Amino acid sequence: MARNPEYSPQGEALGGYIFVCNNVTMPDCFRRRIFGLPARNRESVSEIRPGMPIFLYNFNTGLLYGIFEAVSFGGMNIDPLAWPDPNFPGRSAYPAQVRVRCRVIRPPLNDSIFRLIVGVPIRYRRRLSVTQALNLLDIYEYLHCYCVALAREVIAAAIALPDI
């Protein structure tokens, strides 16, 4: 049985949000600095507040991108020209929207890491509880620190190599 992506477990407060894109819509998300979902997500998107952590999942690649931050309240048709609906000219196919900015660039996470944190695949979760959002932010920071430390070790080892 599929879980409802609209609601956090036991009605917990919203701590973060995951928007979904594909290889076609992703460039527009970044260019417009706006993320959107179909109208059926309007209720949960309307709970988004400025400053809230936002993530973008590309279902073609299976990667979760972050860390973004909401700079507007979530709402409907913030940019009605984003992702035009072919059936309704002048309307967005993804009208449940929020404006974002990049808080910090981190390498993307794959779905299996997300599943360890939240317990379900990304496709079943859009809303993140406060605890889930904080855990996700911690994982991004941990992986960043690990990558930096590893890069420093590689550079130090390369510098220590004798000249041939």
Rank of each mutant, 00 (worst) to 15 (best):
N77W: 00
Y65C: 14
I78D: 02
A70M: 10
L81Y: 15
A96V: 09
G75N: 03
Y94E: 09
I78Q: 04
E69Q: 14
F68R: 01
G66D: 10
P80T: 06
F68L: 13
D85H: 07
G74I: 05
S72Q: 06
P89W: 01
A96D: 05
F73K: 09
D79N: 15
F73T: 06
W83D: 09
A82M: 15
Q97S: 10
Y94H: 14
M76D: 02
S72Y: 07
G74K: 09
P80E: 08
S72A: 08
D79A: 09
D85R: 10
P95S: 03
I67F: 10
P95G: 01
N77G: 06
V71I: 15
A93M: 14
G66F: 12
P89F: 04
V71N: 03
A70Q: 07
G66R: 07
P95R: 00
G74S: 03
Y65G: 03
A70F: 03
E69I: 06
A93T: 10
P89R: 00
D79E: 12
L81K: 13
I78T: 01
F73Y: 14
P84S: 05
A70I: 11
S92T: 08
S92L: 12
G75F: 06
N87S: 07
V71K: 09
P89T: 05
Q97G: 11
D85V: 01
F68E: 03
V71P: 00
S72L: 10
G75P: 06
N87T: 02
S92Q: 09
S92P: 08
Y65E: 12
P84R: 03
D79I: 15
E69N: 02
F68Y: 15
F68H: 08
I78P: 00
W83S: 07
V71Y: 04
G75E: 03
P89G: 00
D79Q: 10
D79S: 14
G66N: 13
V71A: 04
A96H: 09
D85F: 04
N87H: 07
R91D: 09
M76H: 00
M76S: 09
F73R: 11
F73D: 03
S72P: 10
W83G: 04
P95W: 00
A96K: 08
A70P: 11
A93G: 13
F88K: 12
F68C: 06
V98G: 09
G75S: 00
F88A: 13
A96S: 15
P95I: 02
L81I: 13
S72M: 07
A93Q: 13
M76A: 00
I67E: 14
A93H: 07
I67S: 15
G66A: 14
F68P: 05
G75H: 01
I67H: 13
V71D: 03
W83L: 11
A82C: 15
G90C: 01
G66K: 08
Y65A: 14
I78A: 04
P89C: 01
V98L: 11
G75D: 08
D79L: 13
P95A: 02
P89K: 01
D85S: 13
I78V: 10
G90W: 03
S72N: 09
P80W: 05
A96Y: 12
G66V: 10
V98F: 13
D85A: 04
V71E: 05
Q97R: 13
